[in-house]
Design a protein around this nucleic acid. Sequence first.
DNA 1: ATTAGCACTCCACTTTAATGAGTGCTAACA
DNA 2: TGTTAGCACTCATTAAAGTGGAGTGCTAAT
Lengths: 342, 342
Amino acid sequence: MLSNRQLQILQVIVDDFITSAQPVGSRQISKRADITFSPATIRNEMADLEELGFLEKTHTSSGRVPSQKGYRFYVDHLLKPQVITAEDIRQIQSIFSDQMMEMEQVIRKTATILSELTSYTSILLGPSSSSHRVKKFSLVPLTATNAVAIIVTDNGHVENRLVTLPEQLAAHDLEKMVNILNERLVGVPLADVHKKIETEVMQLISKHVGNVEHFIRSFFNVTDEASNGKLVYGGKLNILNQPEFHDLEKIRSLMDMMDETSNEVPSIIRPANSNIEIRIGTENNHFAMEDCSIITASFMTGEHEEGAIAIIGPTRMDYQRVVALLDFMRQELSRNYLGPNV
Amino acid sequence: MLSNRQLQILQVIVDDFITSAQPVGSRQISKRADITFSPATIRNEMADLEELGFLEKTHTSSGRVPSQKGYRFYVDHLLKPQVITAEDIRQIQSIFSDQMMEMEQVIRKTATILSELTSYTSILLGPSSSSHRVKKFSLVPLTATNAVAIIVTDNGHVENRLVTLPEQLAAHDLEKMVNILNERLVGVPLADVHKKIETEVMQLISKHVGNVEHFIRSFFNVTDEASNGKLVYGGKLNILNQPEFHDLEKIRSLMDMMDETSNEVPSIIRPANSNIEIRIGTENNHFAMEDCSIITASFMTGEHEEGAIAIIGPTRMDYQRVVALLDFMRQELSRNYLGPNV
DNA sequence: ATTAGCACTCCACTTTAATGAGTGCTAACA
DNA sequence: TGTTAGCACTCATTAAAGTGGAGTGCTAAT
């Protein structure tokens, strides 16, 4: 069990290091107004805290730096709920001032504003469309062999894919097929479309219209891609401002992770439960993020629709502020984003 | 006028520097098999070339480095058409091996492969859809006040936008409106849709259906966003491998330029005429690219549809190879990409 | 239990010296 | 007259050595 004095010292060290990025020494601490004891006393306490694993030295005669365990303790026990400023609130609410708010726009604006307010990198994962239901299916022929297949969901999401039509397909067969698909697919959640087509629609169609194998197959993946929501980054380059990221290799691996081609990010930033979650350093289980912390939160845009917000910064991150901002943000998003008034 | 020997020396220096990134000295040059004269002679020639502005020194007693003017001369007069390897050809053609090639996929794959083959950053600008004609317009109502407006063009491009419907709008009025829009818009190039609606369709509709001002307005910008084609990057991080980009500020400004939010890139990478074009250093008229060269080429996917390819690398770029690759690539793209068999 | 005092450590920075690649110039050479 | 060998000189790079300062750990005094 840590004494009150130890708690106080740990708190001061973490707070100091977060703002200065410099190892903090005993003398420096003793100068603070709220510290009444001498540097020597502080040194003793710091030695104990180090032995307990909360602090580290960068070299034998340097000041102390919080260890990962130190941050963890700080986050779990010393974090004081911080009130965000009126200006923060104003900025966040400006996102919703525009009446006509399409999901993607809101996500984008949120990402930008969060990265500006925190000066870290924000990641927003829009709610997946897979729980939404098909509102309409249509097929627009382009040439004799090509057409565009379009699915509109009840939240206004549009999926479209170029498909190759079976060779000799009469116009009325095409129409018939579209009718069947509409009959059977409207109302089905996007996530189930694949299965539905395979088990039910496919044989039904081939009864009326021959040779649709290939067409159906090229249409299958329509539904797979909407399973993750839109992923948007804000302030990707903010990480370059952090003094601990002057190392090109670290930057590279982080940037690499955030490159659109990789798709591990959604699973990384989705919080395990729906609360705010903080993962520090190696807790992320990701090489590129060994020196990073990530704070995630989720927001709801419908009964089963969940989006995720994440802020990535150095382990030496302003946890208090970010947590406060994220908490407010998630509330605003959930509050403003009620179902399909989209 | 440069003597043959000067030409040879300039060529050797540029070639050498391109591969080694190190200033090249007289002794080093004289060691080459194709050089018959002594270091002292070379030094004299180099001094002349420097005076003429083709070479520079990094400091008084360093070897020579090509100046921007040197690169320009090299590119204009010394570039030998290089044959690309069978492996290069194989890789490039693999892009088109897949029968079902959607424009966006091809663009993506091209960007990736070009960045891998060159180890520089590639930028691909897909052809704009604005010359394509509206194939179909449809409106899918979601709620009483919201709907999705969808435009499909004859090349299979789909534009969709959430729109707010006028308050009291009967179902048959809606249908009538959609019919009118289809009648009037089908066959119109995307670029002209805006104008067409404003001058013609708007009054026609308001004759039949009242109070459509707001709806029409929210629909206007549908057409503006397709004016630039899809923009795709390949190997954004390759620039980090270049020794001249170990400076964070340079990296930042380049990355910043390539960030999706900025939209100056299309105009930068579009070549002035339809040939291959090389811009070196400050010729780019862009701060972030003072130490970069950009090689652009265009390809045709239809009579009036033009896409652009660009490779961005350090001024010390392997011009020969990149030019050869781009030239082959543009031919392949144009050849494989014939109109709307998409 | 707390703190002043002191020896010690180590980083960061500066200075100095040595090395070596490269140049410019001059004089000799073919 | 064009070419080259020779030589003094410049400058980046590297290593070694010295210096100052911030910080620690320990001990003894309060």
